[in-house]
């Protein structure tokens, strides 16, 4: 029977990730300003990156770089001594993807701004309504 303290220590990182995820999701849905939405999107993606990285951690293990270099092939490498490298690799990819998405989103926001002169979604929709009826 584990105590509540142990439970919190074992899971708090996942909860932090969930909180971040929700902040991002809420900002994307509820905010009216497009740049705020873009920031929300970035928080959302970052939360997932944190989630993966926390999968990779191992108690008592160090960063996944083998200490003695190529000459040290005589000494055995134990998997328990190094943290899981795979999530780090995957997240390097996810970071790049999120940067790329951010770039494209900002370019689109820039195009929208030059078109309508505002980044508030309701004002843009108003202008669209005007131009379609008038």
């Amino acid at each position: 029977m584990e105590s509540i303290g142990d439970l919190i220590i074992a899971k708090y990182n996942y909860w932090a990730v969930i909180t971040l995820l929700l902040i991002g999701l809420y900002a994307m849905i509820a905010k009216k300003n497009l740049v705020k939405k873009i920031i929300g999107m970035n928080i959302f993606q970052t939360a997932i990156i944190l989630f993966y990285v926390s999968i990779g951690s191992k108690k008592g293990a160090t960063i996944p770089i083998i200490l003695h270099g190529p000459a040290g092939s005589s000494h055995a490498v134990h998997a328990a001594d190094y943290i899981n490298p795979l999530p780090h690799v995957l997240m390097l990819t996810a970071i790049v993807v999120s940067v790329a998405t951010l770039g494209v989103a900002l370019a689109l926001a820039m195009k929208i701004y030059s078109q309508y002169g505002t980044l508030e979604e309701d004002e843009i929709l108003e202008k669209i309504m005007e131009s379609e009826t008038g």
Partner: peptide, 17 residues
């Protein structure tokens, strides 16, 4: 968190290490 015996730490990643 940090469980060295979690499935993610036992299945494929030891091969890489």
């Amino acid at each position: 968190w940090g469980d060295a015996l979690s499935p993610a730490s036992r299945h494929v990643s030891p091969y890489y290490i």
